[in-house]
Design a protein around this nucleic acid. Sequence first.
DNA 1: GTTAGGG
DNA 2: CCCTAAC
Length: 291
Amino acid sequence: MGNQKLKWTAEEEEALLAGVRKHGPGKWKNILRDPEFADQLASRSNIDLKDKWRNLSVAPGIQGSKDKIRTPRIKAAAFHLAAVAAAATITPTTSGNSSPVATLHRSGSSDMSIDDSYSIVVDAKNAPRYDGMIFEALSALADANGTDVSAIFNFIEQKHEVPPNFRRFLSSRLRRLAAQGKLEKTQNFYKMNDHSLGTRTIHVARPKEVNAKPHRQTNSQGSSVSHEMVCEASITAAYKLVEADSASDVARLAQEDVERMIILQGHADEMLIAAREMHQLCCQGNIVLLN
DNA sequence: GTTAGGG
DNA sequence: CCCTAAC
């Protein structure tokens, strides 16, 4: 008779958020069943998770009613990271965005009873996007002797929005591409080779303001609904991160995410496979700008 | 058995 | 949180 009106602890909220990030919103029972979150949410039912998620989703929405979202200044860095990560993604109506967290763990075992495709979708699109910018820069600069990191950085940094420590990421990525033979490196200068263009050109079109009409097809309504939920959840997650009071924590999180991204870039081929799966999933009812 | 939504 | 219609 006592466990009623239990206030949600920070640990529980965190577990819920992580669970949604992994399984997607609406998979309350799966989250609850996942041993990763089972203990934190031991005293919560699937319906409780749903209610809590609904509350979290409404909280940041009490903004100006009709005005745009108040840009939280400092936290713009974190928000920006999320936006960049979301750059090439589904664009349903007006609410297109992505989760700020990247946690790609792809287990080859197919005996997993729970569906992990959600987290794959969130993460897989980072590598191709930056590769595209790199190739774009090299193509535009087109120096026969090659281009050094700084020049590449300057080009991308002006043409696109870049994360705080993009410079560091760029160096790492360039080395990787050179090691894979997708770029040619001499001294500290990089340039494209036949392999860069000939193979699977990972060119990602920028959504910009692609006002993708709902384009709902009668035969694929099930999947489109699912994606709406995904987007809503992502927005909520992004807001929650942005709304966090401690700016330092937010900055640290953003930093960590970038580090994760750098690591993830190493497995370009796996990422490509994941990207293909993402495409398969998303193009059923929504538009995906991925080539 | 689960989930979304209203109470 | 509980209740309930809908899947």
